[in-house]
Amino acid sequence: MSTDDPRLRDIIGKNLNQPAVQLLGFPSDEGVIINGGRPGASKAPQLIYDELLKLTPHPVHIDRHTKLLKKTESLTHLNCSRDLSADQENLGESTAGFLSDQVLPVILGGGHETAFGHFLGYAKSTRPVNIVNIDAHADVREFKNGKPHSGSPFRQAIEHQSGMCRSYNVYGLNPASVSAGHLAFVRKQGNAVFEQSISADAILNRLNLFDEESIMVTMDMDAVRQADAPGVSAPNASGISKDDWLKLAYGFGNHPKVTSFDLCEVNPEFDRDNQTVKLAALTVWYFLLGVALR
């Protein structure tokens, strides 16, 4: 390691006596396939992590950023069997364990079926949670041929028998990609906001949280306009800017009630010069910076 030019590969996981963050890969796009989308998101977790390792800690906040990164466990991949429900249960078990140990899981998908497995961590540990989703789509569809998929995770969470989903809130919706019925369904559960300049504070301050409730954040890369993020499962011709996206990632990381995070729908098969993968890595970097500066 160069002492005047450190990279995250030189720092992550160097002080795990008291781990604070766990990076977890969920390389599944079975839900995307069931939903009729473009496969390829299963290849994203390792590629995002590889790009993350090339970055430097923040030069102004290097002490606090480095301190957190040293307490961040390197990427562990969960095995995905293509039995989607079983894979989601497995992700839920892992997430529940980290939450119980007060370790913040940062989950790299995979398709947005990742989010239901992520939620199951709260259900399995009986922790009430408010879900915040940044997404062009509401993702509250019914099952297809009796199977869950990348478009159904939040209906599954809302209707889960545990009752641990206290609210569902989605921001960045593309109005040309959301049915009136799905919009009405979401608005009964929480907030639904179309594409606009949005901030993490504005989002999180709208949540009516009780003391025991946490916030689960999930960010779907297809909320970002296609010019900034071409490599996704469902490209977005409009969408929010990469600048707004990165500010959101930092703001979510900085909020003490946010206890877990996932990033989904990066599809390297359709990327351009690793542009979207690099943006995804920077998203994780900004989220971890926010956590470090809490």
Score class of each variant (00 low, 15 high):
116 F>L: 11
284 V>F: 00
260 S>F: 05
124 K>N: 11
163 G>V: 04
278 K>D: 05
163 G>L: 06
243 D>I: 12
285 W>Q: 07
107 I>L: 07
76 T>S: 10
36 G>R: 01
269 E>T: 11
238 S>W: 14
186 V>F: 09
83 D>M: 11
10 D>F: 12
236 N>W: 01
17 N>C: 14
80 C>I: 15
167 S>W: 12
39 P>W: 08
146 G>T: 02
191 N>H: 14
62 I>R: 04
8 L>D: 01
69 L>G: 00
231 G>M: 03
159 E>Y: 07
142 E>H: 12
163 G>Q: 11
207 L>Y: 09
141 R>N: 11
217 V>D: 07
137 H>T: 11
45 P>L: 02
67 K>L: 08
238 S>H: 11
210 F>C: 13
111 G>I: 09
28 S>Y: 05
4 D>H: 06
269 E>H: 15
293 L>P: 02
130 N>T: 02
83 D>G: 08
130 N>H: 15
92 G>K: 03
116 F>T: 04
136 A>D: 06
62 I>K: 06
74 S>T: 04
66 T>D: 08
293 L>A: 08
200 A>S: 12
248 L>T: 07
216 M>R: 09
99 L>S: 03
173 L>C: 03
45 P>C: 06
212 E>K: 14
286 Y>D: 07
70 K>N: 10
169 N>V: 11
35 N>Y: 05
166 R>W: 02
234 A>S: 13
61 H>K: 13
8 L>I: 05
5 D>Q: 14
234 A>E: 11
53 L>G: 01
132 V>K: 10
54 K>Q: 15
95 T>S: 02
150 S>G: 01
137 H>N: 14
195 E>Y: 12
232 V>M: 08
82 R>C: 14
262 D>T: 06
90 N>M: 12
22 Q>W: 00
179 S>L: 05
259 T>A: 08
121 G>Y: 07
249 A>S: 09
278 K>P: 04
266 V>P: 06
87 D>R: 00
211 D>F: 13
232 V>L: 07
110 G>I: 03
131 I>P: 03
235 P>E: 03
59 P>F: 14
80 C>Y: 04
212 E>A: 15
143 F>T: 13
54 K>V: 06
216 M>H: 11
168 Y>L: 03
250 Y>D: 06
99 L>H: 00
41 A>K: 00
231 G>T: 11
